[in-house]
Amino acid sequence: MLFYSFFKTLVGQPVTVELKNDLAITGVLVSVDQFLNIKLDNIKVVDEERYPHMLAVKNCFIRGSVVRYVQLPAPSVDTALLQDAARRERQQPAAARR
């Protein structure tokens, strides 16, 4: 749940999603769900010359399982808050986790 909540705080921010086959797509994060499926608006494929296939696609839903990385806007990430949340998440008893 930590990263689901985290991504929700980044809605409206520009991100670059890199898929497991190296295709990278930049766009504004519109929403995310519990599987970390991601919805982007105003998208642009990073290497358009090599990947013109999606030139007419303006928004998209990306399945969480095909994602390798998401590059985030560093100033929008509160790292102290994130670390606290990560520590807290692990301190819950095992039964209450997941």
């Binding site: 086959n21 295709l23 990947y51 999606m54 007419a56 696609v57 303006k58 998209c60 839903f61 399945r63």
Partner: peptide, 25 residues
């Protein structure tokens, strides 16, 4: 892997017959 909304105007305006690229991986 991905579903996107298609902009019909952009799509119809694209010169697809001359797009010669490898398929997506």
């Amino acid at each position: 892997a991905l579903i996107g909304g298609l902009d019909e105007e952009l799509d119809e305006g694209a010169d697809w017959e001359n797009v010669r690229v490898e398929p997506l991986d």
